[in-house]
């Protein structure tokens, strides 16, 4: 096609830059000293410093910000591993060796995502209270697993459906079992898609606020919960708050950019249709 889109393209780029500006501002301010951070709009020429980050990690207060980050990492990584362990076989049974009425099963998975989470939150809280799992990170691992499982199964199914059936039949004729088939035949084709799915699960768990807010406290509080209190208590120290926001966002930004391309592909492989 002829390149007739230039004016539109320029507009799109302008809009895109405007769109990403708040994040650019967040990063820039996090690298300023507090007096420079207070100027608005932010000065582009102010000297850069890591003071905000040092303060966030407790340089002057001595209060470490590591525990919530570690909590978030455990909850996100733990639940992602569990999701993969459950979703790969499930997706296998929905694509490569589909059960009868597999579309109904898919619909069941999806239906759990259509329900308002908050409607079932009270019993989830009461159960934790009863068995002593309040403020315990392992409870979040379980809940995040069930939260992400439908999306993972959904995406993974489309990635596994990509594996050519002839190769699978050949493998079956050679008497390969599930593990061998998965490792030698499915994994090479579907691995990038599975990786993208894992990254998405990681992102959703890392950013989750509602469960974490209700079910955790001082011990198991996650990064978003900590950030909420940080925003309200440290609102005046803008560089520090921005540094905190950057630190909390970095893992998900990295994961998201890594997964981005594969996600477009995964969503387009009939996952939406």
């Amino acid at each position: 096609m002829k390149r007739t889109w230039q004016p539109w393209g320029a507009l799109a780029w302008l809009a895109g830059i405007l769109f990403a500006l708040p994040i650019g501002w967040m990063v820039l301010t996090s690298l300023h000293s507090e007096p420079d951070a207070a100027t608005n709009p932010p000065s582009l020429t102010a000297p850069l410093t890591l003071q905000g980050y040092r303060e966030f990690f407790g340089a002057s207060t001595g209060q470490s910000s590591w525990p919530p980050l570690v909590n978030s990492a455990s909850a996100s990584i733990g639940s992602t591993v569990l999701v993969l362990l459950l979703a790969v076989p499930a997706a296998y049974a929905l694509s490569i060796r589909p059960v009868r009425k597999w579309t109904d099963v898919m619909f069941f998975f999806l239906s759990t995502k259509m329900m308002p989470v908050v409607a079932g939150l009270l019993p989830v809280y009461l159960f934790a209270q009863k068995v002593g799992l309040l403020d315990n990170i392992s409870y979040l691992v379980v809940l995040y697993t069930s939260m992400n499982l439908p999306i993972a199964v959904w995406l993974m199914r489309s990635f596994l459906a990509e594996v050519p059936t002839e190769i699978l039949e050949a493998a079956a004729l050679d008497g390969a079992g599930l593990i061998t088939t998965l490792r030698r035949v499915v994994a090479p084709v579907a691995a990038p898609g599975i990786a993208a799915t894992a990254l998405i699960c990681f992102i959703f768990s890392w950013n989750e606020l509602l469960f974490a807010r209700v079910l955790t406290g001082v011990v198991a509080g996650t990064a978003p919960v900590y950030l909420t209190s940080f925003v309200t208590s440290q609102g005046l120290f803008l560089a520090k708050v921005c540094a905190a926001a950057v630190v909390v966002s970095l893992p998900v930004l990295a994961a998201g950019f890594a997964a981005q391309d594969k996600l477009v592909q995964g969503l387009s492989l009939g996952a939406v249709k």
Binding site: A12, W13, G16, I17, F19, A20, P22, I23, W25, M26, N40, I203, W206, N207, L209, A223, P224, L227, T228, V231, G235, L238, V241, C242, A244, A245, V246, V248, S249, V252, L253, A255, G256, F257, Q260, D261, V264
Partner: peptide, 26 residues
């Protein structure tokens, strides 16, 4: 395209609480 998508995708990725902090100031 990848650069552009990344730019538009970034706000989705940033933790909602982090974007709340940024917007509160904006």
């Amino acid at each position: 395209r990848v650069v552009y998508q990344a730019m538009v995708f970034a706000p989705t990725l940033v933790a909602p609480v982090a974007s709340a902090a940024v917007w509160q100031w904006l």
